[in-house]
Design a protein around this nucleic acid. Structure first.
Length: 833
RNA sequence: GCCGGUGUGGUGGAAUUGGUAGACACAGGGGACUUAAAAUCCCCCGGUAGCGAUACUGUACCGGUUCGAGUCCGGUCACCGGCACCA
């Protein structure tokens, strides 16, 4: 019989669907396991090969956990609000809801074809009103607890989407979604105070099991730094507060810089003799985008203007120092003002050199500070020219000066974070309406909770307006409403929430997806608790992963959910790349290579690149499934390489995996009757150990290699039905359809996915004899076979008795011998005296 | 510039964390079966020298520790990812 994967896969998918095989129950007495993958954005292009990697991995884990006896929640849903759908709708004059519906149908079809063991009863969709009702509800809780506020501020404005972007959505000065330039624009925006959770988000990392690079990246993004705020008096009498992480260098502060936006600049207008020059600089800085202001940061030529007519007084020595404005000082960090210590800060040094400011060394231990700034903050530096700090190390000087500043009432310790509040408004249609009402009398009034969900109204055109308002602003009968507070006439907020809103809590909804009374019942939240294992992409580390931790911490603080941290464990997969059609390695002659480099530049030097339509290297999962079957697709994507690293798709290797499944299939007809055979016992028990451990460690490629080895053994030694049964159990998480079919054909009873995971006996993973290498002087010279239980003395004796070794030992004296049990013997000789 | 990661055959990648480098595959070569091809099955496959057993050499580069280093330490180079005037 031939391995007809198309028929087999369809058969089992239908059966799993009809029998609801993977539905799980809340409150089941077995131990629970909540495995989570990032739910997809249902784009028009359908599933791409990037999706099956994390999904198959977690499916393998979920299937194994079920066989291990867990009550497994392995859900899926759709993160369906967002710009691409809206843009498609605008272009093709279809309602975004209709586009979304079609895309979800296509995704659902594709996900079913891959045989994932999702609990489809719990499928969620962020655009469905009974889902976004709770997204809006959570926003109202933020508002009620003072974490949502509206403010006018310069924001990132995408010139093409006509929409505000969060800092996280701006990549290298352009819009992450459409690639259009991003400029700064003053707008009134809803904000979420994620900065109030900066410390909790750092501390929480210590309580969870995330891979290190995720923790590091989040810590860096939050960017905590400890320093001091110090007040400098200006000659106008004003107090200028600066933030510094190096209060120890205060005696070296020879000038001060404030950001062009600093309030004193305007306030001092009448006192500045060079106001015109100052005003010109301020205006120019305001026009630049954040990107222009910060690009090429360190190398960039510093610019600035000295404020003529006002000076600052260094509080530690009473010296009058000049004040500059410069755009290298950011208004949005610290106090928007710094004390400049050119001797010990590279940026201040570059500025001082250009503007001829004085450079005074206050920490010795480096090179000449007139030639280079000395920035070491460790014990290598000793304080000089610093009065009472002289002679101290930097490490001791920091607390000493901080204490002094506090006693004098001119400074104190201060912690700052790079993290900024989350811009939560989007001037777009396809998002959750923000449930707030503006009343001229009462101000912003939250919609009463019993009026949720606030439905997204039907609208004729989804185009954003030219003045940057949301399309909703044109629907006057929706906008005009009554104030829930005073009953007077009022207007609704017309901005919608960003794409990240719905995904910030979706894992909670899976616990109790049909609940109309709460986002999830207390029982469901208590039962499922934290997500046990969340796998997703590194690109979400500072976006979705941080946002959802914030929301979860907040919901915990207000008593809605039992855990502060949503995810107990977070792992991450590498990307799948395609072959580069323009790679220089594809051609033979130097001439051809040079032609490729001339045409494509550095692109031509990479063997692998991101898949893209224009390069024609996109792999469509539908095609792979049609040609090789879902089981081969699954197996290959797990075999492709180290799960955490990027990998390149290879059609040839897919065929290799198909060949392996063919071999498994063909073996079924060659089986001998009987239980596990003694000749295969060692190999089977070793394989069970290896595959079990490797799945837990996400070393799927070596787990599959072990299964391939086992099949090779079965071919050489022959296999019984008992041996084969073990193989099918272990292979079933990777190739579930094939294994179900073979399980049924061989009459093992029931379904393989419902069987217990095989156990191994440690004693049966050890061979009776061991082949050991014998090293002389660190080099392998011979191999011997010894009894597994042999003592070190016996092993050394056997090694010395080996003819080659005996020959080498002639005239020599054994100085030392090292035995690594079951592996090798290392012998060290010296000539006999 | 700072932070994190990677560097192993023609290719994807293994190596129980200091113990026989190249598992398992792909590609390639040879053989069996076949009228033939495909499929399948078996064998070979880092480099150099040799008919051969074998010897030497080999994990980006230089040096060190060790009986023993892909793995640890010091330095260098290249590439990838993140952050980037955050005081």
């Amino acid at each position: 019989m031939k391995y007809d994967f198309t028929t087999i896969e369809k058969k089992w998918q239908t059966r799993w669907k009809d029998e609801n095989t993977f539905a799980c129950k809340n409150g089941d007495p077995r131990p629970k396991f909540f495995g989570l993958v990032e739910f997809p954005y249902p784009s028009g292009a359908g599933l791409h090969v990037g999706h099956p990697r994390p999904y198959t991995a977690m499916d393998v884990i979920a299937r194994k956990k079920r066989m291990d006896g867990y009550n497994v929640l392995f859900p899926i849903g759709y993160d369906a609000f967002g710009l691409p759908t809206e843009n498609f709708a605008i272009k093709n004059h279809v309602h975004p809801a209709e586009v979304t519906k079609q895309n979800i149908e296509n995704f659902t079809r594709q996900l079913h074809m891959l045989g994932y063991s999702f609990d489809w009863d719990r499928c969620v969709n962020t655009t469905s009103p009974n889902y976004y009702k709770w997204t809006q509800w959570i926003f109202l809780q933020h508002y009620k607890h003072g974490l949502a506020y509206k403010t006018t501020m310069p924001v990132n404005w995408c010139t093409s989407c006509k929409c505000v972007l969060a800092n996280e959505e701006v990549v290298e000065g352009v819009c992450e979604r459409c690639g259009a330039p991003v400029v700064r624009k003053e707008k009134s925006q809803w904000m979420l105070k994620i900065t109030a959770y900066a410390q909790k988000l750092i501390d929480g990392l210590d309580t969870v099991d995330f891979i290190d690079r995720v923790k590091t990246q989040q810590r860096n993004w939050i960017g905590r730094s400890t320093g001091a705020e110090v007040t400098f008096k200006a000659t106008t009498g004003d107090d200028i507060v600066v933030f510094t992480t190096r209060p120890d260098t205060l005696f070296g502060a020879t000038y001060m810089v404030v950001s062009p936006e600093h309030r004193f600049v305007k306030e001092w207008k009448d006192k500045l003799s060079n106001w015109d020059e100052v005003a010109t600089y301020v205006e120019a800085a305001g026009r630049k985008s954040d990107f222009e202001r910060t690009e090429l940061s360190a190398d960039k030529e510093k610019t600035g203007v000295m404020l003529q007519g006002v000076r600052a007084i260094n509080p530690v020595n009473g010296r009058e120092i000049p004040i500059f404005i410069s755009d290298y000082v950011l208004a949005s960090y610290g106090t928007g003002a710094i004390m400049a210590v050119p001797a010990h800060d590279t940026r201040d040094w570059a500025f001082a050199k250009k503007f001829g400011c004085e450079i005074i060394e206050v920490v010795s231990g480096g090179e000449d500070v007139q030639k280079e700034a000395f920035t070491a903050k460790d014990d290598t530096g000793i304080m000089v020219n610093s009065d009472f700090l002289d002679g101290m190390t930097v490490k001791d000087a920091i607390p000493a000066i901080t204490k002094w500043l506090e006693e004098k009432g001119i400074g104190h310790e201060q912690v700052n974070y790079k993290l900024r509040d989350w811009v939560f408004s989007r001037q777009r249609y396809w998002g959750e309406p923000i449930p707030m009402v503006w009343c001229d009398k009462c101000g912003w009034v939250p919609l009463p909770e019993d009026q949720l969900p606030l439905l997204l109204p039907a609208v004729k055109s989804y185009e954003p307006t030219d003045d940057g308002e949301s399309p909703l602003s044109k629907i006057t009968d929706w906008v005009n409403t009554t104030c829930p507070c005073c009953g007077g006439s009022a207007k609704r907020e017309t901005d919608t929430m960003p794409q990240w809103a719905g995904s910030s809590w979706y894992f909670l909804r899976y616990m109790d997806p049909h609940n109309n009374q709460a986002l999830a019942s207390k029982e469901a939240l208590d039962y499922w608790g934290q997500v046990d294992w969340y796998n997703g992409g590194m690109e979400h580390t500072t976006l979705h992963l941080l946002y959802s931790r914030f929301w979860n911490n907040f919901l915990h603080d207000i008593g809605v959910i039992p855990h502060a941290e949503p995810y107990a464990k977070r792992t991450s997969h590498g990307m799948i790349l395609g072959k580069n059609p323009h790679y220089v390695g594809n051609v033979d002659t130097e001439k051809e290579k040079q032609a490729l480099i001339d045409k494509y530049g550095s692109q031509a030097l990479r063997p692998s690149v991101k898949m893209s339509k224009s390069l024609g290297n996109v792999v469509n999962p539908d095609d792979v499934i049609r040609d090789y079957g879902a089981d081969t697709m699954r197996l290959y994507i797990m075999f492709i390489g180290d799960f955490e690293k990027t990998a390149t798709w290879s059609d040839e290797s897919v065929r290799g995996c198909k060949k392996f499944l063919d071999r498994v299939w063909n073996l079924s007809e060659k089986l001998k009757e009987g239980d596990c055979s003694p000749e295969n016992e060692l190999a089977v028990h070793r394989a069970i150990k290896k595959v079990s451990d490797d799945i837990e460690a996400m070393k799927f490629n070596t787990a599959i290699a072990a299964l391939m080895s086992l099949v090779n053994d079965f071919y050489t030694k022959g296999a019984t039905k008992g041996d084969y049964k073990q193989l099918l159990l272990m292979l079933s998480p990777f190739a579930p359809h094939l294994c179900e079919e073979l399980w049924e054909i061989n009459g093992y009873g029931g379904q393989v996915c419902l069987q217990p995971w095989p156990e191994y006996d440690e004693s049966k993973t050890v061979a009776a004899t061991a082949k050991m290498a014998v090293q002389v002087g660190g080099k392998v010279k011979a191999n011997i076979v010894v009894d597994a239980g042999a003592s070190d003395e016996e092993v050394v004796a056997a090694a010395l008795a080996e003819p080659k070794i005996a020959k080498l030992a002639e005239g020599m004296e054994l100085v030392k011998s090292i035995v690594v049990k079951g592996k090798l013997i290392s012998l060290i000789f010296k000539p006999k005296a």
